[in-house]
Computed example of a mutant assay.
Amino acid sequence: MLDDICVTINDIKENLKPGEKFKAVGVLTSARLKRDKNDQPYWDLAVMDASGTLNVKAWSDTKWWDARLGEKKALDQDQLAEIERISRQPVGILGVVTKFKQKLQYHVNQIYLLSADKYPPESFMEKSPVPIEQMERDFWAIVDSCGEPVRTLLHDFFDDEMWERFKVAPAAVKNHHAYVHGLIEHTLDVTKASRAIGSIYLNKGLKIDMDILTAGALLHDIGKLNAYSIDLAPQITLQGAVIDHIPLGYFTFMEFAKRFNFDENVILAIGHIIISHHGKKEYGSPVLPSTPEALIVSAADELDFLVYCWNSTPPADELSLSEYNGVAQRRFWKS
């Protein structure tokens, strides 16, 4: 099935229309056996490649093949029953784009289990579209633009061990920047936007501490290092589920600060940005932003999330409106 050219997941989602067929290779990240309204079984699958993740449906007439040893063999019912327990499995899929209730769906009519030696699962991990080398340069240039004591604080916080974790981490399990290097990409966007907004008000004569603003922006999501993990795809940890990244980040930063003789007001101001950056209590912030620096970081964080949603959501109708995004609470206009 791989003799012809395959398309990427992103190509399928962005460019194909109802009725068009596709052929792709990726890694199966989840497989759940469900039943439709007529009590007929079907598979709800997620297939990922380096460009994104596609949710597909495999109905009762879908053909499953085992091609892991080269020659394809049909899967029997006992083998098919094990699919839910298979992880990190490379697959080839052949399918067609359909539309149901004004929403695009992706149905597969053939699925091939492929050799992990020939198609390493790690090669299909979704990564940030921004080169990591560029983001590392940008990050440290911003850190080094800060004055003391913030510059030293940031260098000490992002030591070698912390940096290796930070630059690989995802920013979410889904919804935005949910891929390798997603956290540093999101953090840089929020920090650059915050500094641009802060400069506007600073130039108007408002008292904006640009170093505290910068440190708070760079550290605002640091709790996600403990809230999420990543194998082939981001996953929430037990800490992330029962505590959440905001208090985890605040605790991580304040515990770090105890080891050093930093000014207490500087630490408190940065900690306030971390603990309040979701902007509203109903969004998960224990307190509301109450300094100009915290207000700016919260606004930049929300803006980056919404712009990401707009950019990653395809139009769904002739008006160029997207499907309703429940998290963003709106349909996006994609003209």
Rank of each mutant, 00 (worst) to 15 (best):
P129K: 10
H155Y: 03
L80Y: 05
F124D: 05
I132Y: 05
Y119D: 08
D138G: 06
V143T: 06
A116D: 14
E82P: 05
V150S: 09
M135I: 01
R165W: 12
Y106V: 05
Q105P: 05
I86W: 14
A116K: 13
D117G: 09
Q102W: 13
E82Q: 15
Q102P: 03
G147N: 15
Y106N: 03
V108R: 06
R165D: 15
L113E: 03
L113Q: 00
G182Y: 02
M125W: 07
R85Y: 11
K167P: 04
S145G: 09
L104K: 15
V143Q: 01
P90T: 12
Y119W: 15
R165E: 14
G147T: 11
V173F: 06
Q105A: 13
Y112W: 15
L94V: 10
H155K: 07
G95M: 04
L114Y: 02
Y119A: 08
R137C: 00
E136C: 03
D144E: 14
S123H: 12
L104T: 10
L94Q: 14
R85K: 13
E84Y: 11
E148S: 12
V96L: 14
I83G: 07
L104N: 11
E126K: 15
D159Q: 07
P129F: 07
R137E: 01
I93Y: 03
A116N: 11
T152I: 06
Y112I: 07
H176W: 01
F158H: 08
I184P: 00
E122L: 12
C146D: 01
F166L: 02
F124P: 03
R137F: 01
L183Q: 02
E84R: 12
L113A: 03
S128N: 02
Q134F: 11
P121D: 07
A141P: 03
V143L: 01
L94D: 10
N175C: 10
V168S: 14
V173Q: 11
P90Y: 06
F157K: 02
V150G: 09
K118T: 13
N109R: 13
D144W: 05
V180T: 14
V91I: 15
P129E: 12
V91N: 07
D159T: 04
V180S: 10
L183H: 00
D156W: 14
L104I: 11
D117C: 06
D144T: 00
I142Q: 03
D117V: 09
E136I: 00
I83E: 06
V91Y: 09
M135D: 02
R151I: 04
E148P: 08
E136M: 04
